[in-house]
């Protein structure tokens, strides 16, 4: 799996805070895991917001053709 990973640099302050957070909450094994989780959350959130411009245009086209718009 190591081959699938890349390094990311974050500020030491933030890193220390993240380590404390992990110790207190116990839900994550490492800062790497926490960062990966948070990034995934944010990115999948963006995905949820949606459709690409193109998809949305396609949807609107159908709505127009059916008389909904």
């Amino acid at each position: 799996m190591a081959g699938d990973k890349v390094e990311v640099r974050i500020s030491r302050d933030l890193y220390e805070k993240a380590r404390e957070f992990i110790e207190e909450t116990g839900g994550f094994k490492s800062v790497d895991e926490l960062v990966e989780f948070l990034l995934q959350e944010v990115l999948s959130g963006e995905e949820e917001a949606g459709l690409t411009q193109e998809d949305e245009e396609k949807v609107k086209e159908r709505l127009r053709s059916l008389g909904y718009l």
């Binding site: 949305e56 949807v59 709505l63 059916l66 909904y68 718009l69």
Partner: peptide, 11 residues
């Protein structure tokens, strides 16, 4: 007259 959630959300 059939819409999916993706469509009603845009609408």
């Amino acid at each position: 007259v059939r819409l999916w959630p993706k469509e009603t959300r845009v609408l």
